[in-house]
């Protein structure tokens, strides 16, 4: 659906060059909710704006729905933009127009008939739960309601893609949750591919199926959300994951382990159904190992469970080897870690 190939973006301001993106490549498939996370200044905003060509790449290819955007005329690009909705951190609604008129705007721009506009806007306002606000003005609405209007407006032209530019960053946690639920609904019911950028890992955790981590204009890690949350490779990714899932052993436990002179632990990572299977029991009963749980964490990601166990395991080497084999068969990711 969206392919970015080796994108470089250099801004020239007052004869000083700033590089915003350094060779970024990514692919978003149809039906994905693709999250891009990074600290401010990482280049996320520039990245998301490449998709609807609000920003043009200095070099590299942007391919949306099979069309190479650099080949398209200004007129064709405007048509392509109608297939890509966008919502913003600060909503960017027209303060001088009613909610109805705001949602109708993309249809007015496409010169649709009054009747068609009325039907579509009524349907969209019902979808986002704001039917009673049609004649209100944006300044009479709360932040969450404004973002709902933004979503309704972005959906008006029946887009295939929805871009979310820090769409929940100006909202409180509860409102954020309701907007994220709405985005999921947009993805499920209309089959719209979503690309969102955020600096909050909890947003990625709650809605995305894929994630890319950005730092200083580069994607340092990308993959399925479960993979990245389970074993982030890069320090920055680890830091982001740590904000919602504790995958590292807390310091006080580490100190106690040091006192007891424990140096190696087994780290088990289980996803979905495996997370609730009686793996521990098998280790103890079937393989006769002496298992003590040092630290554990279970988190819900994308409607499945990610469980991380740190175990101290004692026993015969042959039993251990048999146990590791068993874990592998059970699709439990296993690794030995040094404390």
């Amino acid at each position: 659906m969206i392919i970015l190939e080796d994108i470089h973006k250099v801004y020239l301001r007052k004869k000083v060059e700033t590089t915003a993106l350094k060779g970024v490549s990514l692919q978003v498939d149809k039906g994905d909710i693709f999250g891009v996370i990074g600290y401010s200044g990482a280049g996320k905003s520039t990245l998301v704006r490449l998709v609807n060509y609000l920003e043009r790449p200095t070099s590299g290819k942007v391919i949306v729905d099979g069309q190479l955007l650099s080949d398209r005329s200004a007129h064709e690009l405007r048509q392509i933009k109608k297939d890509i909705g966008m919502i913003f951190q600060h909503f960017n609604l027209l303060e001088s127009k009613t909610i109805y008129q705001n949602v109708a705007m993309p249809l007015i721009l496409s010169k649709k008939g009054k009747k068609e506009i009325k039907e579509r806007v009524t349907e969209l306002l019902a979808f986002v739960g704001l039917s009673d606000k049609a004649n209100s003005y944006p300044n009479e609405l709360s932040g969450g309601q404004k973002q709902r209007v933004g979503i309704a407006r972005a959906l008006a032209s029946n887009p295939k893609i929805l871009l979310c530019d820090e769409a929940t960053s100006a909202l409180d946690p509860q409102t954020t949750q309701s907007i994220l639920d709405l985005l999921k609904k947009v993805n499920n019911e209309y089959g719209i591919t979503i690309m969102l950028i955020t600096h909050e890992m909890s947003v990625i955790q709650k809605v995305c199926n894929k994630v890319a981590v950005m730092e200083e204009g580069e994607i340092i890690e990308q993959g399925s959300v479960l993979d990245v949350f389970g074993h982030p490779k890069h320090t920055t990714s680890k830091n982001f994951v740590q904000t919602v899932v504790r995958t590292e052993i807390p310091a006080n436990i580490k100190r106690k382990l040091a006192e007891r002179e424990v140096s190696t632990l087994a780290k088990l990572e289980m996803v979905g159904d495996h997370a609730t299977e009686p793996v521990l029991q098998a280790l103890i009963n079937t393989f006769h190992l002496d298992v003590s749980v040092v630290f554990t964490n279970m988190t819900e990601i994308q409607d499945t469970t990610l469980a991380i166990w740190y175990l101290q395991i004692e026993g015969k080497e042959s039993d251990k080897r048999a146990a590791w084999q068993f874990l592998e068969e059970q699709n439990v990711r296993y690794e030995e870690v040094t404390v």
Binding site: L54, K81, K82, M86, N92, L94, P106, L109
Partner: peptide, 17 residues
Amino acid sequence: GPGIIEAAESMGATPFQ
């Protein structure tokens, strides 16, 4: 605000629009 203009451009509005 530039945000309003950006929103307009994201909708594929012509400069006149």
